[in-house]
Design a protein around this nucleic acid. Structure first.
Lengths: 142, 142
DNA sequence: CTTTACATGCAGGTGACTTTCAGATAGCCG
DNA sequence: CGGCTATCTGAAAGTCACCTGCATGTAAAG
């Protein structure tokens, strides 16, 4: 199913903004911030408020998921194939050097015992440090 | 060792602001936000920038730790007794109804396999939902 | 008590995100 | 194909957490 078809199947209007943003996220391979998407040449001219709302609509429709970085900025990435709708079903890694985030699809979210009658809505598990590329770049210049 | 002594032992000057803030965090029993601390009657009159810097100094000295909420706000809490300096050695719970955060000292941070030569600086594991008190309050009014 | 490195308070600024509202448009129906 | 309506878009302006620069104040060492 093509990106526009998936948008329509999720109950959303297939507007140019949504098709373009969803297409970029599909092509990226890793979660992107609002600012990274705005700077993307293929999304040039897109209003920043429209981008916020587009991302929110895609998250609501469960076409993408979002993860919080410890820098206070949300990242948006495509859902893993066949992944559950539950927010945060896998761990994420954030490089504090380049700011890039990676989905660790192979690391499912661990379960945690909680006090009686607590209601769990979701989990955020973020590992941060320096990615392999930045480590190598740092060694090269050091 | 009293709070002022612990501040001095950590290599910090024992100023009124640091003694008061560290004392409040010790008494609170759960992590507090910058805003919650500013609103605390015992910290009345404290400048908000000074509070930011005081918290940063206490974090650097490893007297307290800080955790990011999915609402984009840092919470500051005392270190668990004898806890390691490594940032984030236990899981946290955030109530999205009352905004309160709890340290789950009994849930150590799970280990996650990462790609070759990645450097890990720390981990943030946040479970969010509604705490037992808010669940009961909601049922009472519903 | 004097010195000085460090802490404080204030003014002002940054950046992510939201709200409001007028104008545009996707998709439905005939 | 053409009109209607709910919904989306874009621009201006606002909110909130947090940071920087600089002059003043103070803890602690000698």
């Amino acid at each position: 199913m093509s990106p526009p078809e998936r948008i329509r199947a999720a109950g959303l209007r297939r507007t140019p903004a949504r098709i373009a943003v969803f297409g970029r996220l599909l092509a990226n391979g890793r979660p992107y911030t609002h600012a990274e998407l705005l700077a993307d040449p293929e999304l040039a001219g897109l209003d920043h408020v429209t981008l916020y709302r587009t991302l929110a609509a895609l998250v609501d429709a469960e076409l993408i998921h979002r993860v919080f970085g410890i820098d206070g900025v949300w990242r948006y990435g495509v859902q893993p194939a066949g992944g559950p709708g539950c927010p945060g079903n896998h761990v994420h890694f954030l490089c504090r050097s380049c700011g890039g985030m990676r989905c660790l699809y192979d690391s499912p979210m661990p379960r945690v015992p909680l006090p009686e009658s607590t209601e769990v809505e979701g989990r955020h598990f973020l590992v941060y440090g320096r990615c392999a590329a930045c480590v190598r770049a740092g060694e090269a210049t050091a």
